[in-house]
Design a protein around this nucleic acid. Structure first.
Lengths: 233, 233
DNA sequence: GCAAAAGTGTTCTTGGTACACCCATGG
DNA sequence: CCATGGGTGTACCAAGAACACTTTTGC
């Protein structure tokens, strides 16, 4: 961190890109905008934008999410997972982007800001190969990152509403991993992991079937023991 | 990635910082330089520097490593693990840094370049709290990242020379995790994991004791099954 | 009572741990 | 033949997988 060479780097701009994931209609879906400018006019792209002078990366991510989609980013799970720095990745000039993974429960999109009109959810399996810039690659990396995180952290609760059933949580694992899990063994695994979920005492009565106990996210962040993907049936 | 606001971001500079780790003298050691300029003059710091116009992050990391320490970065394991963007992290102005973890075998430092004179290895346990900028935090994050990587990837082989014994590999785990492992169970775990190591056929004759078979790194990158830290005695 | 989903108990299997034991070398 | 570290066999134990079975509701 000593030898900067003046004009060598002044034209570089730093961006954040957001991969906002949720589970909707039993599918893993990603929040995309449609580009209103060249390049890639009209193509779907990840929300994102440039870092401002007094902002850190997380701040920029939350701000851009609000501006482009109308979502309140202060409540969602947000973590950076990679930086993309290929000099040719943006035809407008040199842009390095720090990509962030954001996880949300399935909430209606508040069609608020002007930019937000073109924001919407799409299943990740349907958008592969269609995104602007290098966003296909970023999306792939994000999904793999999320899959790995489910094994070792309580990230799955970030996909759920404030109160959820063990079945809801299992759906998250099944949809994100693309597997089916044994409901009975999954139940026990979750409830025997300290701090993963805590009971609220309430129950949810479904249209048909036995009511399920409701839980909220526990205090734990890392799962010990982990819930490994090889546990799949 | 749409709303840049002109002068809002022109003064931002993008840096790479390197946390180069090795196992030396049965301790986890980090490669540090001594700063030759203000701020933090004379204090130890991580090697690093600013991204240039036609360079990607990995390229900048390798170049800076060569300039500041004389090491050939083309051979070592290199991966980015976090970006640091606190607006106040560098007193000289706005600098966002993408931190990289680099892993090397225990090789002599080629005291080559002019800047390299002050580069040297220090045990990570001895430098906590002494580094310039936010490099203490970056070092902590890097070490934790490396510890986690040992569980799930073949990163440990990057700490070893081209040919190594199972005992060498076990030393890496013991030193990085700060535990002791059962040599016999460790042996089996490594050799039953496809692609972790492959035998060279040669043996290393120690000063005393039975000769150990030599291995080189295998083709695998992810460990299946993982070698979990809870496996410690 | 029947369908559907939640949740429990139990067996089987697998992978980890501990450790007795044998192997190969130099002194 | 002893010290030292490399490596195998095996008994034990805990966690996961598979699955029969019970519970709780709406219709």
């Amino acid at each position: 961190m000593s030898t900067g060479t003046g004009r060598e780097h002044e034209t570089l701009r730093l961006a954040v890109d957001l991969v906002v994931l949720t589970v909707r209609e039993h599918a893993l879906q990603v929040l995309l905008i449609h580009r209103g400018n060249q390049p890639f006019l009209g193509q779907p792209a990840l929300p994102g934008g440039f870092l401002r002078r007094h902002e850190d990366l997380a701040g920029a991510a939350v701000r851009e999410l609000g501006e482009e989609t109308g979502l309140d980013g202060s409540m969602l799970h947000l973590e950076q997972f990679a930086a993309y720095s290929d000099p040719g990745r943006d035809p407008r000039g040199r842009v390095v982007s720090v990509a962030h993974l954001a996880i949300m429960p399935d909430l209606p999109l508040p069609i608020a800001g002007s930019d937000a009109r073109d924001a919407g959810w799409l299943p990740v399996t349907r958008v592969r190969g269609t995104l602007a810039f290098d966003h296909d690659r970023i999306l792939d990396d994000a999904v793999e990152h999320a899959r790995a995180r489910l094994e070792h952290t309580t990230l799955a609760t970030a996909f759920c509403a404030a109160e959820f059933t063990i079945g809801d949580l299992r759906d998250v694992y099944e949809v994100v991993w693309g597997v089916t899990l044994d409901p009975r063994n999954f139940s026990r695994k979750v409830m025997h992991t300290d701090g993963f979920v805590e009971p609220t005492g309430a129950k949810r009565i479904p249209a048909v079937g036995r009511p399920a106990a409701l839980y909220r996210a526990g205090a734990a962040i890392v799962l010990n023991p982990p819930i490994l993907r090889s546990s799949a049936t």
